[in-house]
């Protein structure tokens, strides 16, 4: 039985449809990703699955509890790490965890034991009595990761878990996510607009665009859809018709004067290709990435920019305003 099952989930804000008929199943124990550009409807989906928003129509079951009929059942089954910091920075790390344990009605003894365990898991034991104010962005995320796991949820939701973090902290967080998925045996749902993140972490992922699933499979299988390798050519006046005739060219996307081709055995065939195209300004060849998959399905690229007012930026705003 799937741990999450959504059926034609729809959320409208006025005339705008944020989530447009989402149906998917997440299996127990897997790391499942929702990948898409900003505004694709990932966070809205997450808000519905975590009972913070009611769907306009459609249903979803989380740990076999209906998200509308039994929100309390859902809440007891899940842990969440939100996109923006959701710990209180005037409290210490330990106090934030204690507060969480109280909110989840954990008996004092179990609570203290779990605080110890999750602090260990996210390597914050020796900083537990420092105010969260004095944590780095990465440490704060780790604390919230640990907190989300504290009450033994069946599923943990991570909304853009590395948004706004520096590259080193990002990889660090990835390691923790893989570790907790193994050690705590919890199902993990991640939303992200970083392809590398989805590729590295997810067992399966749904690519979402404009509120709809455009593809759903394992990263490996998704990349197979693009076919062999990707060659990007910059050409002034491309002769697309004659390129199409080459039997090793699987697919052609044209965007801003750049041709993106899916090609079998690119290394062997590139000279033949260049013979047909004639003079090119530049050539780039790489194995397919999830960005190519997204381009394949939508004709656009996932922009590599952070959401407006990201994680670290908001901490700074919050502090300066406070």
């Amino acid at each position: 039985m799937p741990i999450i099952k959504t059926d034609n989930l729809i959320k409208k804000f006025g005339d705008f449809t944020a989530v447009n008929g989402l149906s998917l199943e997440v299996n127990q124990g897997e790391i499942f990703g929702l990948l898409g550009p900003n505004g694709a409807g990932k966070s809205t989906t997450l808000m519905m699955l975590t009972t913070l928003l009611k769907p306009t129509s459609g249903t979803a079951r989380v740990n076999n509890f209906d998200i509308v009929a039994d929100p309390d059942g859902v809440r007891k089954s899940i842990g969440i790490v939100f996109q923006d910091p959701s710990s209180d920075d005037t409290l210490t790390g330990y106090e934030n965890l204690k507060l969480h344990g109280m909110l989840y009605n954990m008996p004092a003894e179990l609570r203290e034991r779990r605080i110890k365990e999750v602090l260990e898991l996210v390597d914050l034991t020796n900083r537990k009595d420092d105010l969260v104010k004095n944590y780095s962005g990465g440490m704060r995320r780790r604390l919230e990761l640990g907190r989300g796991l504290m009450h033994h949820p069946k599923i943990i939701f991570l909304d853009e878990p590395t948004l706004g973090l520096d590259p080193q902290s990002r990889e660090n967080i990835w390691d923790y996510i893989e570790k907790l998925s193994k050690e705590e045996r919890v199902s993990v749902i991640i939303t992200t607009h970083y392809m590398d993140e989805a590729d590295k972490l997810c067992d399966r992922l749904a690519i979402i665009d404009k509120g709809k699933i455009v593809a759903l499979d394992s990263p490996t299988n998704l990349k197979k859809v693009v076919g062999g390798d990707v060659i990007n050519l910059k050409i002034k006046n491309p002769d697309i018709e004659s390129i199409k005739k080459l039997d090793f060219v699987k697919n052609i996307n044209s965007k801003d004067g750049t041709l993106s081709l899916s090609v079998n055995n690119a290394n062997e065939n590139i000279s033949e290709l260049l013979a047909v195209t004639g003079r090119v300004e530049s050539v780039e060849l790489h194995s397919p990435t999830l960005n190519d998959v997204f381009l394949h399905y939508t004709g656009r690229e996932i922009r590599e920019e952070s959401a407006e007012g990201g994680w670290s930026e908001r901490i700074i705003n919050y502090r300066s305003k406070k």
């Binding site: 009972t51 913070l52 969440i80 996109q83 959701s86 710990s87 209180d88 901490i315």
Partner: peptide, 9 residues
Amino acid sequence: IDFLKEVLV
């Protein structure tokens, strides 16, 4: 910040 969500959820 998102602390309110942590409580509401």
